[in-house]
Nucleic acid binder design. Structure first.
Lengths: 102, 102
DNA sequence: CTTATATTTCGATTATTCTGGAAATATAGA
DNA sequence: TCTATATTTCCAGAATAATCGAAATATAAG
């Protein structure tokens, strides 16, 4: 794992490490490949539009989601590969090997 | 998963989401159950002592490590259960169910 | 009791992030 | 074109985090 890759993982962890953003990401992931509209997120999470928009673009800047427009509606779609690479990092780079376990 | 638990996971993710702290944590995990001394971390990571100490206590405040004193030396030991609960959250609460996969 | 080593806490500065109202943009429909 | 809806961008203030030298604490050894 290169330094650049580690920094990409750190960036993703950092953006996930905010309660509102983690809640947003959870909803986006659960919406599956079709995604969830920004407005629907706003209904569920009761957070002002501009604040929500900032959090969404933070998650996008970490490669954790993308947006797709359909008419006036913008859908947020999870980038599952990025999520998997974060999980993979924690498992491979941070967890113990079997032989070290008690 | 309760709100309190989500906030605990968010806190852990946030603390891991800093390049220096992620590097610290990686070394601590790899040191296994015996842990690694603060001074050894400092040698590896070339960061001033006071800064390092702050980062270590951030990780401790997120429940990701504990410290054990042996004489003048303080060892940092990973809290593997906390790491596993973070990984578990990302897998269980955030990943797709099989039936949603393509 | 003095000195050396290991690490933390204090204190202060600088940098970054969070927040949300208001204005701007994009699209659709009448 | 005019209006309504959906969302973002602009702006600026408030809050939090990061940084690190210097001083303090803890322990060990002579």
């Amino acid at each position: 794992m290169t330094l650049v890759e580690i920094e990409a993982v750190a960036k993703a962890l950092k953006e996930l490490g905010h309660p509102t953003r983690l809640a947003i990401f959870q909803k986006v992931v659960r919406a599956g490949f079709q995604g969830i509209a920004v407005g629907q997120l706003q209904e569920h999470l009761a957070v002002p539009g501009s604040t929500l928009s900032h959090h969404i673009s933070s998650l996008a800047s970490a490669g954790l989601l993308t947006q797709r427009r359909e008419g006036r509606t913008l859908y947020c779609v999870a980038e599952f590969e990025q999520l998997e690479s974060v999980i993979g990092f924690l498992q491979d780079e941070c967890c113990l090997d079997e032989e070290k376990q008690p």
